[in-house]
Design a protein around this nucleic acid. Structure first.
Lengths: 391, 391
DNA sequence: CATGCGACTGAATCCATTG
DNA sequence: ACAATGGATTCAGTCGCAT
């Protein structure tokens, strides 16, 4: 996983052939801007495959907001008998599928989607995500450390929200900075349940008369983790329900670009002022910790070429349980039941271990002054040499 | 809420008018029995409005690919049983809606439904639950204390499953034993996120050759909390996907009645033997044991996310013997002989100290107004913010 | 009888690149 | 498209056995 950004201008043709490229593709993207208007209309004005990530915090459901309109901008009546409830769900579903379809269109082939919601809407959102061809990667639980208690004592304290993380398609090579997250998590894999406080105190935007400027402002820590985990510096994140602009504020802090879409001019004004106050982090501290997968490939033959191991040198399995001989062509030779066999460090490791696979770099060891060391040590040495050349 | 059982023989006519009452209504319910066969057919043989609770653990439709091996080359025993394979989302949806509709029919008007699932299926289940007229009360997150890791480092550790708790209708006066749960939770409201270990060890049923008798046996603690929270002694709980019989075992323990439905005769045999071994708890002792709570873990990355240390901030070893820089992803950078090295606070502490291990929390310090303070100070601050979190 | 070490396991949509 | 190949990748807990 991790970065696959180097030469990814392959833009899988399948991703683009649903629609003819738009004229808009030639106009520059509205980067680090907030577009005022309906998110579906605004996304329609964007070209295909132009953003790396979509983060969406859509309206949660019909019951809560009179805010929701049908795709044709007619208002949904707030009714609650069975027939109209179905009608309401249908309207919500239509709205959801429409903005999700546009989001998918503007996503690059290897792009990804995040949507946050609660039990009121997340099941409908998740179903639509699957039906539209996205490929769910995880559902993430934001456990609120300080949720609003349930005052009536009629249910469990609703102490979490759910995020869906999905690649644009099953085949997508999505961005996931695994090693960086593991490092940040004190060297344990990051889990699907995240404990974060809700947005309060200084971070909470205040509007007129000290009232909260936005009813559902998300904490910056949540977006921080999302952007660190699934984007790289310079990536473009689109937020079609920009609200108070948390996505934009954290994107600016972390050296990512953003495109916001928001209907409410008051929210836009609050978000603009907020983002203007953000001081970007130093560029040199933004790159995610390098993962082994992203490191330049050093074939074993190069180690031999470089002279770090001479042809004929002996390699050992852990505890010297097996022995191999380095050959000039970068293969190694081991003794098998039918005489000597030659092959890659991986194949020969698997062979002597009778395992289906083996990482030869960590399996085979050479005799160093200080004892047996894995040959990966030599690869690391070469990578450091190469790094100095590059920089 | 709590008990509403006193005068609930009102049996809302709306609940019954879809179907004529069955002749079967006159035959006694198959209480504390396991019915062999397809759950839809078996439920059809039950009368309307005859159970207080439905707990369902349906197939998840995992759609697993090829084999998966652990880093040590051992093979993961995935769920590839025939009962979990569906041809399409449409097929899964049809199946889901059919069993849910029957479940709703057999539920008493004030009855409730629980369904457990993962991101593979829970969105489709939740959508169907809403469409069929159930009223969602909570979604509950079962956070696994010991989940299986993500072996390839490709995603977040899938560390939870989701349960949907829904009343039969919006108007239902469902059962919720608020006070009992609050007491059990050290006088804190029970939250929607539950931390429980997966089912292992002695509790896990073994079949032939010591292999697991069922691939997805649920922990009894999970059903314990469900039944304590949303049923009263003597209530009837129907489990249409009975499997290894956890619902029946806990129901018997807690003085509830159960009806199980299961297709696989081997599972039925295992469940029968298991339930026979259960000793019902003394009626007067059906209170819940208090749950212990641990201090929430705060990784270093969360301190950076939270904004308590900005990317680029400097950290110092005691006596400023060494220096490090905070990076956006929650790693830190130090100068080594071959240039800058990055890693966790622990790894980098060990590196500069040339020690095998190091507690980065106490080793690294930041510049506070009152002088150098260990970064553990910031972790403590976050823990205080997060307050006491229910288990 | 403790203690330690190694083997084993769990609802898993689990790789990337080249040819 | 698929096949072959390189080589990256795990956490909490239980159980059995050796010391």
């Amino acid at each position: 996983m991790t970065t696959k950004k180097k030469k990814k201008k392959k833009t899988k043709s399948a991703a683009l052939k649903t629609r003819a490229p738009r004229a808009a593709a030639k106009t520059p993207l509205p980067l680090d801007e907030i577009l005022e208007g309906d998110c579906i209309a605004a996304m329609r004005a964007l070209p295909d495959a132009c953003v790396d990530l979509v983060f969406a915090d859509p309206p949660y459901n019909l019951q809560l907001g009179g805010d929701l309109t049908r795709p044709d901008n007619s208002r949904v009546d707030g009714v609650d008998d069975a027939w109209d409830r179905f009608d309401s769900f249908a309207a919500y579903d239509a709205f959801t599928r429409e903005w999700l379809a546009e989001a998918r269109r503007v996503l690059k082939p290897d792009g990804a989607l995040w949507v946050i919601g609660s039990y009121h809407n997340i099941f409908r959102v998740g179903t639509a995500v699957q039906d539209l061809g996205f490929w769910i990667l995880n559902d993430i639980i934001w456990n609120k450390t300080n949720p609003m208690p349930n005052f009536r004592g009629a249910r469990f304290t609703n102490a979490h929200e759910t995020l869906v993380w999905a690649a644009r398609s099953k085949e997508a090579r999505y961005t996931f900075n695994y090693a960086a997250l593991k490092t940040a998590n004190d060297d344990l894999q990051m889990r699907s349940d995240w404990s974060l406080p809700i947005c309060t105190g200084n971070e909470r935007l205040k509007g007129a008369a000290g009232r909260k400027a936005h009813p559902t402002q998300k904490p910056e820590a949540l977006l921080y983790r999302v952007l660190i985990a699934t984007t790289n510096p310079g990536d473009v994140a689109l937020d079609p329900f920009f609200g108070s602009g948390t996505t934009g504020a954290v994107a600016k802090l972390l050296g990512r670009r953003f495109i916001g879409i928001e209907r409410d001019p008051d929210y836009i004004a609050a978000a603009r002022a907020r983002i203007a106050r953000v001081e970007p982090a130093p560029v040199e501290d933004l790159a995610v910790a390098p993962s082994k997968r992203a490191a330049p490939r050093v074939p074993f033959g190069a180690v031999v070429e470089r002279g770090l191991l001479r042809p004929g040198a002996k390699l050992y399995a852990p505890q010297k349980k097996h022995e191999a001989r380095v050959r000039a062509d970068g293969s190694i030779a081991v003794r098998g039941p039918d005489g000597e066999v030659q092959g890659s460090i991986h194949k020969m490791g698997a062979l002597v271990e009778k395992a289906p696979a083996c990482n030869g770099w960590t399996y085979w060891h050479f005799e160093a002054k200080t004892g047996l060391k894995p040959i990966d040590f030599l690869r690391e040495k070469m990578r450091r040499e190469m790094g100095r050349q590059a920089s």
